[in-house]
Design a protein around this nucleic acid. Structure first.
Lengths: 202, 202
DNA sequence: GTCTATAATTTGATAGAC
DNA sequence: GTCTATCAAATTATAGAC
C-alpha cells in the first residue's frame, strides 16, 4: 500500500514535470523514456498516443489538485483558511521546483493541443472557479454580494495566480508569486471584508 | 511611407500570430513559409535561425506594446486613464483574435526556450512592471503608499491580465477577460481610491 | 530574395521477438 | 512489459543555382 507506483505512474510523474516546465509541445516520448530508464516504444505500451498521455496527466493533476483543496462546503475550516490554502497550493508549486500550474501551461498553448487535452485544461479552470465561488459565497454570510460579483472575484483570484507563475518565471524570480499573493490580500480579495464596507471584529 | 511592409515584416507578422496562438514550440518555419507564400529556405534568408526570429518577434512586440501605452510620466492623461488603456490593450488582443499576450506564452514555456528568447520575455515583464509602477505612483499623489506596496499592486495587475488570457482561452470564453478587468476595478486596483481610505471627489 | 535539393536530427508511432 | 528495428513525416538548417 506504500509503493503503489508502477511504471505507468512513474511515466505520469515524469510527463507532469516535463509539461509543467516545457509545455505539451516541449517534450517527446524519448525525453520521458530516457528519464524512466526505458525505451520510447515502452512508453507507447502504456500510453498509445501522446494525446492519451496528455489527457491522463491533466486529469490526474486536476483531481489531485482539487482533492488537496478539500470540500468547499462541508469542511470545518473557515473560508478564509481555505483561500489561504488555495494560494499556498500555487505558491508551493512554483517555489518548490519552479514549475507552472499544469493547466496554466496548457491554456497558454491551447490552440496547439489535441482537442481531448484542451478539454482537460478547460475542466481544470471550471472546477477551480466553481470551488472558489463556493468558498467566496460562504465568506459572504450575509448574502449581500451579487453572484456575478462573486464570480468576477473568483476569476480574478484564479487569473492572478496563473499569471503570477508566468510572471515569476519570466522574471526568474520565484518570490514574485508570494508578493502577488500579498497583493491580493492587500486588495481584500482573500478576506471577508467586503469592499467599501466596514467590519466589526473577527 | 504607407506600405513599409517588406517580406521580413510580413514574416514577423505571421510569426507573431503563430507564437501567440500556438507557442514558440508550436510552429515551424514551414508554417510561416506557407502562409507567406514562399519556401522555408527563404524564411531562413531573413532569419537564419529560429531563435533569431523568436527574438525579433518578441522585441518588436514589446516595443510596440509599450509605445501604445504612452509615456507614464509626461503624458497629459490622467493615471486612471492610462490604467484603463493598459487593461484595454490586453482585452483587445484577446477579444479581437483570441490571441495571448506574446510574452505570456513565452513565460509559460520559458524553460523550453533558447536563452536569447527567454531574455526577451523577461524584458517585457520588467518594462511592463516599471510602467505600471510609475503610473500607480502618480496615482498616489500624497505619496502615502509605500513603494513595496506599489510594486505588489503592479505585479497583481500584470499577473491578473496575463492569467486572464490563459483562463479565458481555457474556458473558450473571451468575455472572461472583460469580467476579470471589471473584477480588478471592483477591488479598487485600477483607481486612486486607496484601500480602506475615503476620497472627496474626482 | 527566392528557389531546388538535400542533409542531419527528431518525432510520434508500429511490428514483432523475447 | 520491455526490447530492437524500423517507419514516415516533420523539423531546423545549409549549399548553391537563378
Amino acid at each position: 500500500m506504500a509503493t503503489v507506483s508502477h511504471k505507468a505512474d512513474e511515466i505520469l510523474d515524469i510527463a507532469e514535470q516535463l509539461v509543467r516546465s516545457q509545455g505539451y509541445n516541449g517534450f517527446s516520448f524519448r525525453d520521458i523514456a530516457t528519464r524512466a530508464g526505458i525505451k520510447s516504444a515502452s512508453v507507447h505500451y502504456h500510453f498509445p498516443a501522446k494525446a492519451d498521455l496528455g489527457v491522463a496527466v491533466a486529469r490526474r493533476y486536476t483531481d489531485r489538485f482539487l482533492a488537496g483543496l478539500g470540500d468547499a462546503e462541508a469542511s470545518g475550516a473557515h473560508p478564509e483558511d481555505l483561500l489561504a490554502r488555495y494560494v499556498a497550493a500555487f505558491r508551493y508549486a512554483l517555489t518548490r521546483d519552479g514549475q507552472m500550474c499544469l493547466c496554466g501551461v496548457l491554456g497558454a498553448e491551447i490552440t496547439a493541443l489535441p482537442p481531448e487535452v484542451a478539454r482537460e485544461a478547460k475542466r481544470f479552470s471550471k472546477l477551480n472557479l466553481a470551488w472558489l465561488e463556493r468558498v467566496l459565497s460562504r465568506l459572504d454570510k450575509q448574502g449581500t454580494a451579487d453572484p456575478a460579483s462573486l464570480r468576477r472575484r473568483a476569476l480574478v483570484i484564479l487569473s492572478a495566480l496563473e499569471g503570477a507563475m508566468i510572471v515569476a518565471r519570466s522574471l526568474g524570480d520565484p518570490t514574485a508569486v508570494e508578493r502577488i499573493a500579498e497583493g491580493l490580500s492587500e486588495a481584500h480579495l482573500l478576506s471577508s471584508r467586503p469592499i467599501g464596507r466596514k467590519r466589526k471584529s473577527t
